[in-house]
Write a protein that binds this DNA or RNA. Structure first.
Length: 678
DNA sequence: CTTATTCAGGGGTAT
DNA sequence: ACCCCTGAATAAGTC
């Protein structure tokens, strides 16, 4: 228990600094610092009002300020307080955690259930090639608080003292450990109870990844904003990973052979540390994970998992077979040498003789994110053969032939198929229409059915955005800083920096409004038509908006009632807390209610089905256009979504039901299914 | 844009 | 202490 995360009393400045997962949230700069307005780009900027209602400036919706009575009660009674492995003292409603995420890749939590939102803005900048909403959450000012904070935890980096800005404003001195602790503290203790279970669960894995994402992003923001001071984390991925490891915020901490509870075949990851944290592959860099002779209680080491990431000359031609190279023989100083039958190589050899299961993670180039990689968990393989061969370098290299065990869900094979469809080396079967948007989107959206004989959805006109949207009053202070082309880190005259201490860099833009991913409308087995993507989608990434005809509440009432229009988007629907806080039902607050019908005219969003365990969520967004601005609904990925996985969001509940409206039986199949939606 | 190079880095295992 | 199929930033090579 000595690793209590900041326990001392609690000083408000620290609490204020905590950025819950909301950090993931589209990090919309708070209303008071719309850094975005600074970029007078061509495209209509997006300003986002988070569904979580405006908050008083400077006040973060976290305990002890905003915890709901229910939340508090629940956490108190369910949490075996005394011996919680990870001591997080402050209770925070889980929803803040699961709040809509945002923009960057973060995924954050998800649920839109949170109600609290503070208005935030997201601006969109055409041409910014990062689709993900960026996470610069400038909101409550990291700098303010932290700079004042006393340094408790030890920061490795030598903080060379506060860097003071020109105008004497905010020192950019951020203690990474303090920031990390603040994030941990802002998490609902109940989450840790889930995570700390000896055997992982789906929730523990997802929570872990969510926390890591928030942490990584937050540390990355700091790094970016403090570049010149060389004070940030050079490797946010490593720093965040270290913190989580140290605090025990991880899943499946015990190394094991075979499947890992809570991790599903086909799951994707974007950082090696994610693999460590969920218990899939422990080494932060090495490609072979194994149980040493001690851990395995045997004389010999046994392999548990491998990551094939292109570092050696692996052969991956056949999707079910992998020729993997042993480790070693590539010392940088000493140059190449023969590999030795030791460590991982020995473990693989032993595992082959024993016929043990070996988990395989395949690293691929992430097309959407050129500089990075995506790791695909491809399930259980067994080692069928091993030999030594001369590598190009002329030295001996061990080779292992791994064969995928049959009966497992498709994972890497799906990626291969998509690649073939892409390069036309194999045809996409079941295509009904190559582009259902008829060119209305920059990217074609195909219509496919390989399930039954339906020829397509009922007729509708494809439009990429809202029709008849009404201008709303400009979102509060449209005034942010006056930086043009983005706030510069060193500009202390920038109001964003003055207010937050951290330069927002003005990257808070969801890049384009249009589609970025290669989406397809497909026939589901039992839910009619659905939507999915050929491209992997990172948590927090903007996917699309809800296009259609804006209508008023009376019309929505009428259409949604007796007319049974199933394509109505109603921002006033309520999102039920599914898991931990069933009583916490609050309606998202947005500048003004929005009702949209996509029955006759709409875009891909009209095909997204409901799920009680959704992988997508929506956020209200205000798009600025010259002097006007109007409200839009944007969808973001809650977590990493592998290709071809159906995109779903929580439709919420209409209470009371409109005249003539009926509850619909939910077919989402989730273990958390509410049973219906309406 | 694709590939190569540089460089700081963390956990795990072995010593 | 050493090893290792990071990952980002930078540089250089391709078109």
């Amino acid at each position: 228990m000595d690793n209590h995360v900041g326990q001392d009393s609690f000083d408000k400045s620290r609490v204020l600094n905590v950025k819950p997962l909301r950090t993931l949230v589209p990090v919309f700069p708070s209303p008071s610092n719309p850094s975005s307005s600074s970029t007078p780009q061509g495209g209509a900027p997006f300003v986002c009002a988070s569904p979580a209602g405006p908050f008083p400036t400077g006040v973060a919706p976290f305990y002890p300020f905003f915890v709901s009575p229910e939340s508090q009660r629940l956490s108190e009674q369910n949490a075996p307080t005394p011996q919680r492995a990870t001591p997080i003292s402050t209770a925070v409603p889980i929803n803040s955690f699961k709040t809509p995420t945002s923009a960057t890749n973060g995924d954050v939590g998800s649920s839109r259930r949170t109600s609290r939102n503070r208005a935030a803005h997201i601006t969109e900048e055409e041409g910014y090639n990062n689709t993900e909403m960026n996470e610069l959450d400038v909101e409550d000012g990291i700098g303010n608080g932290s700079s004042k904070r006393k340094k408790r935890g030890r920061a490795k980096r030598a903080s060379a003292g506060p860097v003071t800005g020109v105008s004497g404003v905010v020192p950019v001195d951020v203690d990474l450990d303090v920031v990390a602790n603040d994030i941990l503290q802002s998490i609902n203790p109940m989450v840790f109870d889930v995570i700390n279970h000896p055997d992982g669960s789906r929730d523990s894995v997802l929570f872990t990844l969510m926390i890591y994402e928030v942490m990584r992003r937050k540390l990355g923001q700091i790094e970016e904003s403090t570049k010149e001071a060389h004070t940030g984390a050079k490797r946010p991925d490593l720093k965040a990973g270290t913190v989580m490891m140290t605090k025990g915020v991880r899943s499946n901490g015990k190394k094991r052979i075979g499947i890992v509870p809570g991790v599903e075949i086909g799951d994707i990851f974007f950082f090696r540390f994610e693999l460590c944290l969920v218990g899939l592959h422990a080494p932060s860099m090495a490609g072979i994970d194994y149980l040493g002779s001690k851990a395995s209680q045997e004389e010999e080491p046994l392999a548990v998992s491998i990551v094939s990431s292109g570092g050696y000359e692996d052969n991956t031609d056949d999707g079910d077979v992998l020729i993997y190279s042993g480790q070693g023989g590539v010392n940088r100083e000493k140059g190449a040498s023969d590999q030795k039958l030791e460590r991982g190589n020995l473990a693989l050899e032993k595992s082959m003789h024993r016929g043990n299961d070996v988990r395989v993670i395949r690293g691929l180039k992430d097309v959407m994110h050129p500089s990075g990689k995506v790791y695909v968990y491809d399930g259980i393989y067994k080692i069928q053969d091993s030999w030594v061969e001369k590598a190009k370098s002329g030295f001996n290299v061990f080779k292992y032939k791994l064969v995928r065990m049959p009966g497992q869900p498709e994972a890497y094979a799906t990626w291969k198929s998509i690649q073939q469809w892409t390069d036309k080396s194999a045809p996409r079967t079941g295509v009904i229409l190559p582009d259902l948007t008829s060119g209305a989107e920059k990217v074609p959206v195909c219509l496919v059915n390989d399930v039954d004989n339906e020829k397509g959805p009922a007729y509708f006109t494809y439009i990429p955005t809202l029709k008849n949207s009404k201008a709303i009053a400009p979102v509060e202070p449209a005034a942010g800083c006056s930086c043009v082309g983005g706030c510069q880190p060193g500009n202390y005259n920038c109001s964003c920096i003055q207010k937050n201490g951290v330069p927002p860099t003005c990257r808070n833009r969801v890049s384009q409004v249009g589609l970025k991913f290669r989406l397809e409308v497909f026939r589901t087995k039992n839910k009619g038509w659905g939507l999915r993507s050929w491209d992997a989608i990172r948590a927090g990434t903007f996917i699309c908006e809800y296009a259609g005809e804006v209508i008023d509440s009376a019309r929505a009432e009428m259409l949604g009632g007796e007319n049974e229009d199933e394509y109505i988007f109603d921002s006033t629907r309520i999102y039920q807390q599914l898991d931990v806080f069933p009583a916490d039902i609050e309606a998202p607050k947005i500048p003004s209610p929005l009702y949209v019908t996509a029955k006759n005219e709409g875009n891909v969003a009209r095909f997204m089905n409901h799920s009680c365990s959704p992988n997508v969520l929506w956020r209200p967004i205000v798009r600025e256009n010259k002097h006007e601005s109007d409200l839009h609904i944007a969808f973001f990925a809650i977590r990493h979504i592998p290709p071809m996985v159906e995109l779903t969001y929580d439709y919420g509940i209409n209470l009371p039901l409109k005249a003539g409206q009926r509850k619909k039986k939910c077919l989402c199949g989730s273990v958390k299914c509410r049973g219906y939606f309406c």
